[in-house]
């Protein structure tokens, strides 16, 4: 709230504290559950179609997948820097970090769209094979999450520039940041699972 804590003041021992709202964490848990079920469905469907999955996986671009991983991780890092800057009341700098994160996230979307354009040219669709069904479903479901994450980051960027967050009153920023990191976390399983493991 209206704390007068200065960042340099000696710190008392801290009780465990959930960064972000309880409601968003319940939501994150629900999201992870949804992706978890999808991953399990992929893995077990692959187990009964190994040759097909391995052959069609080979046609994916691992370069694009790795580039996207780097973009998401970098965006996540920038969000962390933004939160740290806001804790030190450096709103302008926090805004810059968030803008950089938004740029990386947008880059992810661009790379993904090139991948999709390529796939559609090759007549890949939800009905063309079980692997394609999972590849398109999983990545598109994640794609939608990146878009939502970007909307949240843009809202945070506006708020940060308006100086809405302070040490001790970081709830909104931490809530949005936690969501973005969830989107990142899911991709860290998706990339090796769908693009690499065979």
């Amino acid at each position: 709230m209206n704390t007068t804590h200065s960042p340099a003041a000696p710190q008392p021992a801290h009780a465990p504290r959930l960064a972000g709202d309880l409601a968003i964490w319940i939501f994150i848990l629900a999201e992870l559950l949804a992706f978890g079920v999808f991953f399990a469905a992929y893995a077990f469907t692959r187990a009964s179609n190994v040759a097909l999955f391995d052959a069609e996986q080979l046609a994916l671009s691992r370069n694009a997948g790795a580039l996207n991983t780097v973009l998401l991780l970098t965006a996540g890092y920038f969000v962390v820097r933004a939160v740290q800057a806001a804790e030190h009341a450096a709103d302008r700098i926090a805004g810059h970090w968030l803008a950089a994160a938004i740029a990386c996230g947008t880059g992810f979307l661009a790379v993904k769209m090139f991948e999709y354009a390529h796939a559609f040219q090759a007549d890949i669709s939800l009905s063309s094979s079980p692997f394609h069904m999972f590849y398109l479903s999983l990545t598109f479901f994640h794609f939608m999450h990146v878009i939502l994450g970007l909307v949240i980051l843009i809202a945070l960027w506006k708020n940060v520039r308006a100086g809405r967050y302070r040490l001790g009153d970081m709830n909104g920023l931490e809530t949005g940041a936690a969501y973005w990191h969830m989107v990142d976390l899911v991709w860290l399983v998706l990339f090796p699972l769908v693009y690499v493991i065979h």
Binding site: I26, A30, A34, A41, S127, M133
Partner: peptide
């Protein structure tokens, strides 16, 4: 309807208890 609905339908409707669970909590 196309076969992929068996996956989409199964997975997302399996998650339909979540909003009700959230209401209970």
């Amino acid at each position: 309807a196309p076969e992929y609905w068996q996956w989409w339908g199964s997975i997302f409707s399996a998650l339909e208890p979540l909003p009700f669970f959230a209401m209970t909590v």
